[in-house]
Amino acid sequence: MTQIDHTIITRCQAGDRDAFRLVVERCQAMVFSIALKMLADEDEAKDIVQETFLRVWQHIGKYDPRRSFTTWLYAIASRLCLDRLRSSTRIVALPEDEAVMQRFASADGQLELENREWAAIVRLLAEGLSPKQHLVFTLCQLEGLSSQEAEEATGLTAKQIKSNLFAARQTIRERLRHMGYE
């Protein structure tokens, strides 16, 4: 997880735009990653990145320095992604998405994925998941957040995180099993 120096945040809170530029440069890949894995669409992910940093700039004065800045950033991005997911149509896998997954699996995970390939894999995995399950799976499984970080980012309890993650994994395993994976 990207770490931001506390002094940079303090400068941002004082209205320093150069400090904010540093924050954007360092954290935009992280925000884009969660947005693409949530929405499976490159353009929508870019929109989410912009909106997230605008919110950060607007509300940087309310940020509590005792909390992790990146977790706070995840929380803003997650909420925006959930809103976008709920307002748009559900994610549906396309016929060609299976071929992308097969290529990735046959390369033993060494294949460098393009953004459109990421979108294909996300569509394949996330089809049939609820927005909340999708978010927890993305944060815990794909982004590698700990349970506590996921709790802070989503506002869910540990039990809710665990149950949503379990349900998401079950659904995804079932789907991959149908595709011939063990």
């Binding site: 935009q28 890949a29 992280m30 884009f32 990653s33 693409l36 894995k37 997954m101 990735f104 699996a105 033993d108 995970g109 994925l113 953004n115 990421w118 894999i121 499984q141 794909l142 982004e143 590698g144 994994r169 995804i172 991959l176 994976y181």
Partner: peptide
């Protein structure tokens, strides 16, 4: 498969 997807970030 799931483990190999973990921690990877798409490129901007």
């Amino acid at each position: 498969i799931l483990d190999s997807l973990q921690g990877r970030q798409p490129k901007i």
